[in-house]
Amino acid sequence: MKRLFASILPFILLAGHIYCIELKRVETWNFKQIYKGQIISSFFDSSGDLIITFGIQPVLLNKNNSIPFATFGQGPNEITHLYTLCKYNEDLALFEDVNKIKVFTKKGGTYLWKETLWLRRDSLPFFLKSALFYKGYFFLAGMKILRFPAPDNMDTANLQIFEQHSNSPGKSIMLEVGIKPDRQYEIERFLLPYKDHVLYLKQNEMKIHFISIDKLEVDKTIQLFTPTFYRSMPKNFYIWKDYKGNHREYLIDLETWAMSYSAITNVIIYKNDHLMVQIRTCSQENGKFAILLYDLKNNYQLEGLIFLNDLLLAERDGYIYCYKGGNPGLDDTAERNEIIIYRIID
């Protein structure tokens, strides 16, 4: 009996500690313009404006305005496609192709093209999902096919690292060897700067990979504690399937894959030493999403859990910015362009 009590005591204490955190709504931003497409990234730029990418359309938002920039086209201030974007010093780096970066700088309240950078690339595909520029390196997360040793298997890398202003081919790390072709390249990846490391997370794994800036290798991998409602990704997801040109069926599968398990929807660093991970609950009882707060300095302990129906976008000065109703393009409740600002009450 004593042993049983001793084993469940940490969970009781942890649970008590988790539920003492709540959110207070402090402000709402409303915009007339409606942007279609899924939010693929969101962050604050160097001057404090929120940058949200809806599908392939980046938009600058603040309390008063929402201004789309880098619209579709081949002109200098336009792009034909957008894989991902990230901060690049004081500017923004927009990946029009996996090796073509259009740098946009802020002028007159919007972003205009400044220069184009090219990275070296081989002929095999790279399914780029997320990018980060940190301490002189571009970190590109996705699925890079390195070689096909046999027709039914391949060697891939989850991360490629390119040194700024270098013509080197880049370093491939987090390798997976001899895997069968599937559609896991659709899985979102998250990259975060954290002191002398870059944190790497995949949408379907509650794991943090710490990538050392000095060694450009994975230093350690931490398995995060998951709450009881966490629903793992079914194994039959992302298997290879011939859609025979039926694009609609493929889009339905993409939606099912994104919504039917506790996929990570966003990850941010909160107050320097906490990791805020938002996951889907796949339940309507408490909220569509749950924000899990992990203490990076204290053994990655789960310190807080908050249920809500809004999509986590970014954090600034202790305030968290969310998109009302979830992710437009995935959640039917995210109809309006409305941003809610919350403060965490400890």
């Binding site: 081949q74 002109g75 200098p76 090796n99 073509k100 184009t116 090219w118 070296r120 690339r121």
Partner: peptide, 25 residues
């Protein structure tokens, strides 16, 4: 086939020994 010549130039720099030209859309 691309309207922006600097884009074509940037792309061409990655390949040697090939004569690149631009055609407008």
């Amino acid at each position: 086939i691309h309207d922006c010549l600097p884009d074509v130039k940037g792309f061409a720099e990655m390949f040697s020994g090939i004569s690149f030209h631009q055609l407008t859309i």
